[in-house]
Simulated scan of single mutants.
Amino acid sequence: MKKIFTLIMIIGLIVIIRGDTGSSEITITNIAPEKDRLQIIKEKGLLTFASANGTPFVYIDTETNKLSGIDADILAEITKRLGINKIERKEIQFADLLNQLTTDDSIDLAADGIYITPEREEIVSFTQPIYKESEVVIVPKASKINFKDDLKNAVVGAVRGTKFVDLIQEWKKNNLVKDVMIFEDTPKLLNDLNNGKIDAGVSDATLIEYSLKSKGFFLKTLRDYTPELNRTAGIAVKKSDVTLLNALNEKINEMKADGTLYAILVDNGLNKNDMILN
């Protein structure tokens, strides 16, 4: 009886196995390996990156109508060395850059004076640092605010999505400022500060130096302020794009070694203090 039962079970299994396919033959299909992002970029001859629209990092030069700025020039040199013929930019609010990078497959990377921080590294991967950055405090030229301690009764602003928002909110928490205001972009921040709608602002040192030099603002920076956010900036890529990240780092190393990166920084108003040697 046991032998008969076992035989019946075996026959049943064979019927079940053959019942779905009608055949015991196994068909093997060759599946082409998925192309990585760097390969796709090279085949298209086009790299697409996300940035906000702002000097001095990424902007359109009104005289030449060309993409210009610190990060734009660095990317242009990198793509040339990678044999990529064209760069295309998607303009996105700074606060949304990294989220858009991770969710929009048409964007290859993001670059716009983006500070490398542990929180951001949980979302994206960064290249090695390409230059140094820090913040400044801006006030109207006629302001009586001369030191950080003078901010205790001040309304201070910063741009949404930047680390400066975290900084001034920490100041408010510790009663170092009266209140904070969050802005969508730097021009709005500077305009409201210039028009007396807020008392002070905190922003990127390089950006502010460029803005105050080229615009009709009656603003100044606090000379005796010691930066609290000495950071480095890098290029952000999706965490899955390891090959692209490695290629970017290789070219950045080359540019550091032959002096090209330093020359780009100097051409854009930075100096040796902003350079990262290793």
Rank of each mutant, 00 (worst) to 15 (best):
residue 215 K to L: 12
residue 212 L to F: 07
residue 211 S to C: 08
residue 232 T to S: 14
residue 202 V to K: 09
residue 233 A to V: 09
residue 238 K to E: 01
residue 234 G to Q: 06
residue 227 P to H: 01
residue 201 G to M: 10
residue 226 T to F: 08
residue 195 N to R: 13
residue 221 T to Q: 06
residue 221 T to G: 03
residue 208 I to N: 10
residue 228 E to D: 05
residue 211 S to H: 03
residue 219 L to G: 05
residue 210 Y to S: 15
residue 204 D to L: 06
residue 235 I to W: 07
residue 238 K to M: 14
residue 210 Y to R: 15
residue 199 D to A: 07
residue 196 G to Y: 06
residue 215 K to E: 14
residue 234 G to A: 04
residue 228 E to Y: 02
residue 235 I to Y: 03
residue 202 V to L: 11
residue 222 L to Q: 07
residue 198 I to D: 00
residue 192 D to P: 04
residue 209 E to D: 15
residue 232 T to I: 02
residue 196 G to M: 06
residue 224 D to P: 00
residue 192 D to M: 14
residue 212 L to D: 00
residue 227 P to V: 00
residue 199 D to Y: 05
residue 237 V to D: 03
residue 197 K to Q: 13
residue 206 T to R: 00
residue 223 R to F: 04
residue 229 L to S: 08
residue 196 G to W: 05
residue 227 P to A: 04
residue 196 G to K: 12
residue 215 K to F: 13
residue 215 K to P: 02
residue 194 N to Q: 10
residue 220 K to H: 05
residue 221 T to H: 01
residue 238 K to P: 06
residue 237 V to S: 07
residue 202 V to P: 11
residue 222 L to P: 06
residue 225 Y to R: 00
residue 193 L to M: 09
residue 201 G to Q: 02
residue 225 Y to D: 10
residue 220 K to V: 08
residue 238 K to D: 07
residue 219 L to E: 07
residue 195 N to Y: 13
residue 201 G to W: 05
residue 218 F to K: 04
residue 227 P to T: 01
residue 233 A to Q: 08
residue 206 T to Q: 11
residue 236 A to L: 06
residue 232 T to V: 12
residue 206 T to H: 07
residue 232 T to C: 05
residue 213 K to A: 12
residue 227 P to W: 03
residue 224 D to A: 14
residue 225 Y to W: 00
residue 221 T to D: 04
residue 213 K to E: 12
residue 212 L to P: 06
residue 231 R to E: 04
residue 192 D to L: 12
residue 223 R to C: 01
residue 193 L to G: 08
residue 194 N to D: 13
residue 228 E to T: 07
residue 198 I to P: 02
residue 208 I to W: 10
residue 195 N to Q: 14
residue 234 G to M: 06
residue 226 T to C: 01
residue 204 D to K: 13
residue 215 K to R: 13
residue 219 L to Y: 07
residue 212 L to N: 05
residue 195 N to I: 10
residue 193 L to N: 09
residue 196 G to N: 07
residue 215 K to W: 09
residue 227 P to D: 04
residue 232 T to E: 10
residue 198 I to Q: 02
residue 197 K to L: 15
residue 219 L to A: 02
residue 222 L to I: 10
residue 200 A to K: 08
residue 209 E to P: 02
residue 226 T to E: 15
residue 214 S to Q: 14
residue 192 D to N: 14
residue 231 R to D: 00
residue 218 F to G: 03
residue 204 D to P: 05
residue 218 F to A: 09
residue 226 T to G: 02
residue 205 A to S: 15
residue 235 I to G: 00
residue 230 N to P: 01
residue 231 R to P: 01
residue 193 L to Y: 08
residue 209 E to F: 00
residue 213 K to L: 13
residue 225 Y to Q: 04
residue 229 L to P: 03
